[in-house]
Amino acid sequence: MDLLLDRWLHILAGVTWVGLLYYFNFVQVPGLAAAKADGTAAGITKHIAPRALLWFRWAAVVTWLTGAYYLARAGTFADAFVLQGPHAYLGIGAWLGTIMLFNVWVLIWPNQKKVLGLVDASDAEKAKAARTALLASRTNTMLSIPMLFFMVTGSLSHIGMF
C-alpha cells in the first residue's frame, strides 16, 4: 500500500517539476524576452518567476525522494543505479533524474537568484548567471525526454518490453 501511495506522490511531484520546467523553457523564457522588449517584464520577474521557481525546486526534491524511497522499499535501489538486470532501464531514468536534480539545485537556482535580484550581483555577473541557468534548464529539458521514456518503459520491464 505504501508503495502505491509513494508511486502516486512520485508522479504528482514529477508532473509538477517537469511541467514547470516546460513552462520555463517553452513559455516564460520567450515570453520574458518579448516582455523586456516592450517594458512589461517587471511583473513576471517579481511575481511569477519566484513562485514558479519555488514549486519547481521543491517538486524536484519530492520527486527524487519518493522515487528513491520506491526503489529502496522495493529492494531494487542498488540494482537500478548500477544498471543491473531488469532494473537497468529504470536505472537509466533514475540517473537522468538525479542529474536533473543536481542541475536544479547547483546550477539553475543559485544562478536564477542572481538574475532575479534575490542576491547581489553586478550586471556582468547577472548576464553570466542568466546564460548558465538557461543552458542548465535547456539541458534538463533535453534530459527529460529520455528520462520519461526510461521511467515509463522501465516500470514495464516485467512484461518483457526489452
Binding site: N25, I92, R138, I145
Partner: peptide, 30 residues
C-alpha cells in the same frame, strides 16, 4: 558550430537523439 540548446527545437531534437542513443546502449551493452 551552433549550440543546439540555444533553440527549443534543437533542445527537443537533442532529447530524441539522446533517447535513441541510450535505447541502443541499453539493449546492446547492458
Amino acid at each position: 558550430m551552433k549550440n543546439p540548446l540555444d533553440s527549443i527545437s534543437g533542445t527537443i531534437i537533442s532529447g530524441f537523439v539522446l533517447t535513441l542513443i541510450l535505447y541502443i546502449f541499453a539493449n546492446g551493452v547492458l
